[in-house]
């Protein structure tokens, strides 16, 4: 199938290096300590963060750092066919783990020993790249909750179809069966915290694709920073400072 036509346009009218439209909103769940909604095109994700708080299950308590827990789920209405999926299937367990590890990397856990941080992410609408969207939403929610972090973590995916590296795959491109590289970075320190791909790619091509994904991450980081700044200004304004 042709994913990039000879005019250089993808199926949805983007060019290969273009991302989908980003939207973000902080404070979507009033009850949570921090929350955010993050959208990448038609992929829409909500994240809620609770904590740092007392560890619920004492046996899991860690004495020198905080316990980070993460739960990923997909709303039944998030995909076209409204099937009821069992909770905690392989895929969501894996993604929960991936997100937890990525977030743990940037949270300064040693500042909050013997406490627990819960991150809940739920996909409201899925159109490819849910993993990346979840990480971005979780970053925003953690920032909103005021949890100390080393840096923002941002994530973006890139693929390789029709011999062209493509940024930010949507569902149609994602299900084409080509390689899908998901990268998460700490943009300020310029370090990679997440790198996933379950396909084969020649190493030189892979480098290009990954570079593209990193560029995407940086663009997202800029956007998230703007959103946070705007949010802070709002808070300032409300306090009347």
């Amino acid at each position: 199938m042709e994913f990039v036509n000879p005019e250089g346009l993808r199926l949805d009218g983007r060019r290969p290096m273009e991302m989908r439209q980003l939207r973000a909103q902080i404070g979507a769940v009033a009850k949570a300590d921090g929350s955010a909604v993050f959208e990448m095109g038609n992929t829409k994700v909500i994240a809620a963060v609770y904590g740092p708080r007392e560890v619920q299950n004492r046996s899991q308590q860690i004495n020198d750092q905080a316990l980070v827990r993460c739960e990923y789920s997909m709303a039944n209405f998030s995909t076209g066919d409204r099937r009821r999926k069992p909770k905690g299937d392989r895929r969501s367990t894996e993604i929960s783990l991936v997100i937890r590890q990525t977030m743990e990397e940037c949270i300064l856990t040693n500042l909050m020993p013997r406490s627990q941080i819960d991150i809940y992410v739920q996909v409201l609408q899925a159109d490819g790249g849910t993993r990346s969207a979840c990480i971005n939403a979780a970053t925003l929610a953690l920032a909103d909750a005021g949890i100390p972090m080393r840096d923002l973590v941002t994530s973006c995916s890139a693929g390789f179809l029709n011999s062209t590296p493509l940024l930010d795959l949507n569902y149609v491109e994602d299900s084409a069966g080509g390689p899908d590289v998901t990268v998460g970075i700490l943009p300020k320190v310029d370090k990679v915290t997440l790198l996933q791909m379950d396909a084969k790619l020649p190493i030189d091509t892979f480098e290009n694709v990954m570079q593209l994904a990193v560029e995407g991450c940086k663009a997202i980081a800029n956007y998230i920073r703007e959103v946070l700044l705007e949010n802070t200004k709002q808070l300032e304004y409300r306090r009347g400072l």
Partner: peptide
């Protein structure tokens, strides 16, 4: 029957 939603980016 399934309802599909696709984005179109107009340039």
């Amino acid at each position: 029957i399934q309802k599909l939603v696709r984005e179109v980016y107009l340039r």
